[in-house]
Structure formats: structure tokens, C-alpha cells
């Protein structure tokens, strides 16, 4: 049984963690406000990052051998400075992730990944051989492709799955403390597939987009009469990446291409055309009727990404609703009126 390695941003290659015999554990924060983290990080900073720091300070996390912090946005950069001093247990490993997708970026990212593997290996007992890494890559791709298939079937209406179930399973999958637990999660979801689920057909088919999604949001939207059929967030569909042709040779190059080439986060600022193409594909493939965009307070990327989404929706004639949230679970009342009014428009 391997030790746990914490991670945050979905650009973190869990394959490397697994290949070294560790278990990747995603940090998703906690419900409620963050008085202790507020001591170390200012008020107007990403609430998700503060929420994660809060769980660490309160010692609510399982024992971690280390944590990989991808310096993917400004909030994560500051978390990387603060975590080892005030919160984290075990080693803190930082990873720089390019904000662009081209051959230079892929090469540089692959070099960073190789370095990360070296640093992680130092924590564990074994050196990372390429063959082990390829095994992990295949194992993860198998699981992701299963999930992608499941979500595509949902979108085609072949199976009835609520967005809230999907989010709950994905959360469980990402934070599963053991490999066995992960298999169980997968088995569980497969079993649920067979059962009859609430039938949302006929409801407005919504894409949820934006910053990391609060786990309760899809459930609430469904409670209020909508149907979340696609969750474009780093704890939703984005985390499942996209299939890429298997490289031969350097597994780190393959991983770099896999992650940088996946559905882009708004942080990929040099890659915005691809993000718009991605939205267009989703809207067509999943017959999206409307979009709900969740802007995490103080997330600069989401603030500007919402602008881009607004232009996109205007062009496509899609209704769009913006919800502001602070990741504390306290915005329910505000959201309800907005979502219900939005759904009344359909």
C-alpha cells in the first residue's frame, strides 16, 4: 500500500505519482469559511486555494507523504509559497506548467515532468523506469476512457445520469485514498448505470463551465429543474483529458502532450481559439440549450473567460447565466433565484 501524494491542479500528471507506487489524492477543500487560512493569505484571493489550506491547517487531510503544487495560476503560486510554511505535511514539490500549447511548451513541460519524477522518486523507494510509467499511463487512460464513454452515453440519452451523481463519482475517484477504493468507485458507478435513474429528459440541457465547480452546484441546478449534461471544469470533464496518439519513446513527452493538449483551462491564455472550438464542439455534440458559468470570486482567469463565453453564447444565440461563488457552500440562496429565473426562460 503506497503513501498518499496530494495534488490540486488538473495539469498534475497523476501517472507519475502512480508509477512510483504512490496514491494520488486530490485536494478539493472543504465546505464553510476559512478563518485560519485567512491568516496567511489575503481576503481577495481564490477561495478554493484558501479552502485547501484550511483543511491542511485543521489537519483534516489524511496523512500525505508529499504534495505536488502546480504553479498554474497566481493563487496556486502563492499557495506553493505558503503551503510548506503554514499548512502542508510532508514534502512540497512544485511544478511549472506552460500556458501555451506548442512544441516548445511540450518539450519544456516534459523536462519539468522528468524533474518532478526524480523529486518524487527521492521520496519513495524506487526509481522510475520508463516501462512503469507507460504502464501507469495505460492504466489511467483506460479509466479515463471509461468515464468519457459513460458521459458521452449520458449526453446521447442512452443512460440517465444526473450531473450531481457524475460529480460525486468523479470527486470520489479523484480523492480515492486507495487503488482498491478507486476500483470500487468505478464498479459502483457501473452498477448504478444499470439502475433506473431520475429521468431528466425534456429538461433544458445545460453546460456548466468556469472555475472549479462546487460539488453541490449540479445537484442544486437539477433540484431547481435543469439538467447538467456537461461540466467543463477542472473537477469535471476537463480532468478526463482527451485521447492522444500514443507516442513511442519518451513517456514524459507523451504526458506533456496529453495534459497540455487536453480541454484547455482558461489559464491557457495563448490557447483561447482552441477553447472556443472546444465549446463549439460540446454545444453541437451534446445539444446544449444553455450555459451556466460559475465565476469563483477573485479568479482573474474566470472573470475574463466569462467575457469570452459571453461572446460565444451571443454568437450562438445561447442563453447564459453567470453565478458568482466563494466556494463556501453559502451562496445557495443567491443562486436559487437566479437559476430558477434562468430556467423559466426556456
Amino acid at each position: 500500500m503506497g503513501a498518499l501524494i496530494g495534488w490540486f491542479c488538473h495539469y498534475t500528471p497523476v501517472e507519475i505519482i502512480t508509477a512510483l507506487g504512490f496514491i494520488p489524492y486530490r485536494l478539493l477543500g472543504r465546505e464553510g469559511n476559512t478563518p485560519r487560512a485567512d491568516t496567511y493569505l489575503v481576503g481577495n484571493l481564490c477561495p478554493y486555494v484558501k479552502s485547501c489550506l484550511e483543511t491542511a491547517i485543521r489537519q483534516e487531510l489524511p496523512p500525505l507523504a508529499g504534495t505536488v503544487i502546480a504553479r498554474s495560476c497566481n493563487a496556486m503560486i502563492h499557495l506553493a509559497s505558503t503551503w510548506p510554511r503554514y499548512g502542508g505535511q510532508g514534502a512540497t514539490l512544485v511544478l511549472d506548467v506552460p500556458r501555451r500549447l506548442d512544441e516548445e511548451a511540450v518539450l519544456y513541460y516534459s523536462q519539468n515532468l522528468r524533474r518532478l519524477a526524480g523529486e518524487l522518486a527521492w521520496l519513495g523507494e524506487r526509481q522510475l523506469e520508463d516501462s512503469l510509467l507507460w504502464q501507469a499511463i495505460d492504466a489511467w487512460e483506460e479509466q479515463r476512457s471509461y468515464w468519457r464513454g459513460l458521459l458521452a452515453a449520458r449526453a446521447r440519452g442512452e443512460i440517465c445520469l444526473s450531473g450531481s451523481d457524475v460529480m460525486a463519482w468523479l470527486d470520489g475517484w479523484q480523492t480515492c485514498a486507495t487503488a482498491a477504493g478507486r476500483d470500487k468507485g468505478q464498479a459502483g458507478s457501473a452498477a448504478i448505470e444499470q439502475q433506473s435513474r431520475p429521468d431528466f429528459r425534456g429538461r433544458p440541457r445545460l453546460m456548466l463551465a468556469g472555475s472549479i465547480l462546487p460539488a453541490e452546484l449540479p445537484a442544486l441546478i437539477e433540484e431547481w429543474g435543469g439538467w447538467s449534461v456537461f461540466e467543463d471544469a477542472c473537477n469535471g470533464r476537463r480532468f478526463l483529458l482527451a485521447e492522444v496518439a500514443r507516442e513511442t519513446g519518451d513517456p514524459y513527452l507523451h504526458l506533456a502532450r496529453l495534459y497540455l493538449g487536453g480541454p484547455p483551462c482558461p489559464r491557457m491564455v495563448a490557447d483561447q481559439t482552441r477553447r472556443q472550438q472546444y465549446w463549439a464542439g460540446v454545444v453541437d455534440d451534446y445539444q446544449i440549450d444553455g450555459v451556466i458559468y460559475h465565476v469563483m470570486k477573485f479568479c482573474d482567469a474566470a472573470i475574463y473567460d466569462f467575457r469570452a463565453m459571453k461572446d460565444f453564447c451571443d454568437r450562438r444565440g445561447l442563453p447564459l447565466l453567470r453565478l458568482d461563488g466563494d466556494y463556501t457552500g453559502g451562496a445557495r440562496g443567491q443562486w436559487q433565484t437566479r437559476v430558477e429565473a434562468f430556467l423559466e426562460m426556456f
Binding site: E31, N33, D326, G330, G333
Partner: peptide, 20 residues
């Protein structure tokens, strides 16, 4: 009662929801 938001505007709306 748990009040999560500390922004006056957010908190006020939360308080109203709790009363409701």
C-alpha cells in the same frame, strides 16, 4: 447558524435565506 460568506453583501443574502 453557519454563515459562510464574510462579504457584507453575500452575508446579508445568506441571513435573509436563513430567515426564510
Amino acid at each position: 447558524a453557519s454563515i459562510s460568506s464574510m462579504c457584507t453583501v453575500f452575508a446579508e443574502s445568506e441571513v435573509v435565506s436563513l430567515v426564510a
